Simulated assay, not measured.
Amino acid sequence: MTPATEPPPRGSLLLDDQLCFALYAASRAVTARYRPLLEELGLTYPQYLVMLVLWEQDAISVRDLGTALQLESSTLSPLLKRLEAAGLLRRERRPDDERSVALRLTEAGAKLRDRASTVPPAIGDAMGLTPQQDALAKQLLRLITTNVTENVHH
């Protein structure tokens, strides 16, 4: 892949000039690559994201999980119900704050982590990026997210 030598003209309506389309196509391709790997774990991609957060930080509040995943509680609730029905997590009222719900991994949810450890390397291999390209891609995507999010509120 060769980098573009010149940026597209401002206001170009050519599909190949649209960064948003490149992001969309990449997201679809990567999510599609996840699908067979996650099916083996019995998870959808959004459920996998929830599990990643719980494997990193068990006993997280629903609010903090929503913040971490940038999802509204209305989107999270059905995901959490399905994961709870699958026996991977349980929701508990926090004793110090009855209004707050803590999410905890079950034994099955914790054990699933070992099986899931093959997913990141498989996705990394599919992407074919060097460690430096991987770090740069994440840095740029996070910058885009921050910039677009901040501009929405101005």
Rank of each mutant, 00 (worst) to 15 (best):
L143A: 15
A135W: 03
L76Q: 10
I144K: 13
L80E: 03
T146Y: 13
P78E: 03
P131I: 00
L88Q: 11
D114K: 14
L143Q: 13
T130N: 08
Q132N: 07
L141Q: 14
T146E: 12
L112E: 02
T146R: 15
E98C: 06
A110L: 10
P95R: 04
D114V: 12
D134C: 09
A108C: 04
P95T: 07
Q132D: 12
D134N: 08
R104F: 03
T118A: 15
A108W: 01
E92C: 11
D97N: 13
T145F: 11
E98R: 12
Q139N: 06
L143Y: 13
T145G: 07
I123F: 05
A85G: 09
T106Y: 01
T118M: 11
D97Y: 00
I144M: 12
E107T: 15
S100H: 01
A122E: 14
I144P: 04
L105I: 11
A86E: 08
L140N: 02
A137H: 08
T145K: 07
A86S: 12
L136W: 00
S77Q: 14
T146Q: 13
L112C: 02
L80S: 03
P120A: 08
T145I: 04
L76N: 11
A85I: 02
A110N: 07
S100K: 05
D97F: 01
I123W: 07
E98Q: 13
S77N: 15
R142L: 14
E98V: 12
L83F: 02
I123N: 08
A116M: 01
Q133I: 06
M127T: 05
L83T: 02
S100F: 00
E92N: 11
L136D: 04
E84A: 15
M127R: 13
T145R: 10
A108L: 07
D125I: 08
T146H: 14
L88Y: 15
A137R: 13
S100C: 11
R99A: 14
R94Y: 00
A85T: 11
R142A: 12
S77I: 02
S100L: 08
L79S: 03
Q132R: 12
P95D: 10
A126K: 04
L112K: 08
T130I: 07
T106F: 06
L89P: 08
V119N: 09
L141G: 05
D114A: 15
T75H: 13
R82D: 14
A85Y: 01
G109Q: 03
G109K: 01
E84I: 05
G124I: 00
